[in-house]
Design a protein around this nucleic acid. Structure first.
Lengths: 218, 218
DNA sequence: GTCTATACCCTGATAGAC
DNA sequence: GTCTATCAGGGTATAGAC
């Protein structure tokens, strides 16, 4: 405690500020969260916040960055184990639901701060887009692995976007019904139907001959 | 123009304030929209806003009320014409897509102001919930009419919630891809699959014998 | 790295002439 | 109903001692 306490205190303060700021901003939104609120809530004086992050916008960007890395780390790996599509889809949806349940702040930050892009700085806008792009890329890779869609990028794109819309819609519903979880049941049915609609058979292997599908080819 | 100009000017000013406030609040959110901004944008002095609405919160509630009535008036009637399910579903989705396209403010207000419920007044929170409840009730009645679900309320409830989630998710996606429209194609496939999953046949008549259980076949 | 004190501006809201 | 003028308070951000 005498060698390098300053540094330790520094990073600890930094984290404390980010914790409180993330909590408050995800609850009240960016504009409604004042520096003084954060200062009062985390106990550190206002100037410390400015020493660490330079501006309110700097805090916002740092909060977003941390939320993004945390959420992406919590998401299941892209390679989903399982013999057939149904099995892989089940594990995939279970893990998504779990990540969704355990990280309520992540999406809410993305929503709340994404909404006020107009006023935000260039760095903040870039970070918000980075966040959302990473989420979309992860979803695309995942559904591609689940359904075996390496050679059907347009299908995995559609399935991924659809999944994200249902997830964001649920995040929205969540501030009307606070306990609302991601309803994987209907989502599962919908994804299977969408895949079938594009001629992706509900088996483990990718269809070499998708002629049997509802829309054999497009 | 000499008999009752005061009244006319009054209601015209009122509308102008509401127009500007709705536009600004849907873009920047409630907290980031100041009385002075509204005043400058609509040309009327600050005190006029207070004379008409009493407080910033009063403006907010009035804006929400007007957006709700406008959006609900723009939504298609519950009784959808059409011989069979597929036909009714198509017209229904087309009209929803159209309303969604023509009234971008409505949902954004609901989202943006719904997010900051924590800080808002009781009247504002009540109005937000009223808004969302009306939307949900309309969606439930509509899908019930489309699929003929008068005796399966739990199914129409699920379909309506699913539709609303996709719609809100699209409204969210909209502030990343400004032109994004409601993708009725995938939604159509999903709703039909969900209905089938609950044993609702894709015909005009309601199924008298849904004994097939959860799904006709899986 | 952390604190106190403070500058400067804009906020929501009111008073009172017209 | 609309205007000008104004208040008290809180906002972001900075300076400088420790």
């Amino acid at each position: 405690m005498t060698q390098a306490p300053a540094q330790h205190r520094g990073t600890r303060s930094r984290d404390a500020i980010l914790d409180t700021a993330g909590e408050l901003m995800s609850r009240h939104g960016y504009a409604a969260t004042s520096i003084s609120m954060i200062s009062a809530a985390c106990g550190l004086p206002v100037s410390s916040l400015y020493w660490h992050f330079g501006s309110k916008d700097g805090i916002y960007v740092a909060v977003l960055q941390r939320a993004r890395t945390a959420l992406l780390a919590a998401l299941p790996p892209v390679e989903v184990p399982g013999a057939d599509v149904a099995q892989r889809l089940d594990t995939f949806l279970d893990e998504v639901k779990d990540a969704f349940r355990r990280h309520p702040h992540g999406l809410k930050l993305l929503l709340g701060l994404g909404m006020v892009q107009q006023d935000a700085s260039a760095a903040a806008v870039a970070e918000v887009h980075h966040y959302r792009d990473a989420l979309l890329a992860w979803a695309t890779d995942s559904v591609s692995a689940v359904f075996g869609l390496r050679d059907r990028p347009e299908v995995s794109d559609e399935l991924a976007r659809f999944t994200l819309r249902v997830a964001s819609g649920t995040a929205v519903a969540r501030w009307f019904e606070p306990g609302a979880a991601l309803e994987t049941g209907p989502l599962r049915v919908a994804l299977l139907a969408l895949a079938a609609h594009h001629g992706v058979a509900p088996h483990g292997a990718r269809p070499e001959d998708p002629a049997g599908g509802v829309t054999g080819r497009e």
